[in-house]
Computed example of a mutant assay.
Amino acid sequence: MDIDAFVAAHRPTWDRLDDLVRRRHRLDGAEVDELVELYQRAATHLSVVRSASTDAVLVGRLSSLVARARSAVTGAHTPAWREVVRFFTVSFPVVAYGARRWWLGATLASLAVAYVMGVWVAGDPAVQAVVGTPEEIKQLVEHDFADYYSENPAASFAGQVWINNAWVSAQVIISAIVLGLPIPYILWQNSANVGVIGGLMTAHGKADVFWGLILPHGLLELTAVFLAAGVGLRLGWTVIDPGPRRRGEALAEQGRAVMSVALGLVVVLLLSGLIEAGVTPSGLPTWARIGIGAAAEVLFLVYVAVFGRRAARAGETGDIEQAPDLAPTA
């Protein structure tokens, strides 16, 4: 192929395409159609040139033109920083806010189980004997519980806590695939463990140590777990009661929204892990450590309430901005 003749024949097309790309914000309807057509032609020309010519300058110039034309035709992508801002101001809080009743239900049920278990263990020596031998309980009460928060370097411990709590929350959300049936059992295990340890510590006069070590990080940590349980249960219920939408559509929309919570909880649990590693075992007075944990908890709840309510009133659901189109159904 005579590459010079090819260039001479198609240069007007390339020049016209370059002009349209430069004026892409001021094109009328006919010019937009022309832009798309010329972009397709130029892409074909680029393929021909690459296979028939070794002229790097020509290939580079035509590649640049095609790339700019593609950007003009398809549109620019949303800047990454806008996606991040939208996630933290809309997607995550609106899903958490929408699941508030499920979230509250999981919280109250879990706290009730932990309280009943704690009272039972603390008030019945026979139950304590089933939990462990006197030596094992003494080791737990006097050493193991408190040492758990300080036996590892803070950075390493924070990483371990973060991974563990993120995994627990992920298990809860994944359980929604089977209608959320495993979620009550997961919550029961977690609440029972807290209640048993709290009961043992209380029975041996260490209630102040228990609350002083568990509240600073536990408020935010358990809130995150209960939120994960709430959205997981809500997703599972969507399978049973999809509302006016088709079941597949409702499940897909709710499933995409729930992923926002899964990602958001990574950040929440990271903060909880940092508090557990840096504040819980610190030398600060008990009131100060609990105050830091309570402040983090209040800020999180206010954040969800303010941003979630605002997004809900604006009609947001937490679904992705460009969700798949759905066919209308009766």
Rank of each mutant, 00 (worst) to 15 (best):
A176V: 04
N165H: 11
V178G: 09
T202G: 07
L213H: 13
M201F: 13
A166N: 09
A170W: 02
P184M: 13
S175V: 05
A176Q: 04
S191Q: 11
I174V: 15
S175E: 03
I174R: 00
I173F: 02
I174N: 01
A166T: 11
G212Y: 08
N193F: 14
A203E: 03
V209I: 12
G212E: 10
W188I: 10
V196W: 00
A176H: 03
F210R: 08
L179C: 14
Q189V: 09
Q171H: 09
S169E: 04
Q189L: 14
T202C: 10
L187A: 06
N190A: 09
M201W: 07
S175H: 02
A176T: 05
S191D: 11
I173N: 00
L181N: 09
T202F: 11
L200C: 09
Q189M: 14
N190Q: 08
I186N: 01
Y185F: 15
V178D: 08
H204L: 07
P182S: 03
I177N: 05
G199W: 01
A176F: 06
W188H: 07
A170N: 01
G205H: 03
A166S: 14
A192M: 13
N190L: 10
L179Q: 13
T202A: 15
V168M: 10
S169M: 07
L179T: 13
G180V: 01
W211A: 08
A207S: 13
I186P: 01
I174L: 13
G198W: 02
I174F: 05
I173D: 00
W167F: 12
W188S: 06
M201E: 13
L181C: 09
A203Q: 05
W211Q: 07
I174S: 00
G195M: 02
P184V: 11
A170K: 00
N193L: 12
G212N: 08
G180F: 00
V209Y: 03
L200G: 07
K206A: 15
G205F: 04
N165V: 10
A170Y: 05
K206M: 14
F210D: 07
P182F: 01
W211H: 13
W167N: 12
N193C: 09
P182E: 00
P184K: 09
L187V: 10
T202D: 12
V196R: 00
W188R: 05
G212L: 08
I177Q: 07
Q189G: 15
A207K: 03
G212H: 06
I183G: 00
Q171E: 10
V196M: 06
A176L: 09
A207D: 06
T202N: 11
G198L: 04
G198H: 04
N193Q: 12
W188G: 07
G195E: 00
M201I: 12
Y185M: 14
V172Q: 01
S191C: 13
A166Q: 04
V168P: 03
P184E: 09
N193E: 11
S169G: 07
H204E: 12
L213Y: 15
V168A: 08
I197T: 12
V168H: 02
P184F: 09
Q189E: 15
F210M: 12
Q171C: 11
L179N: 11
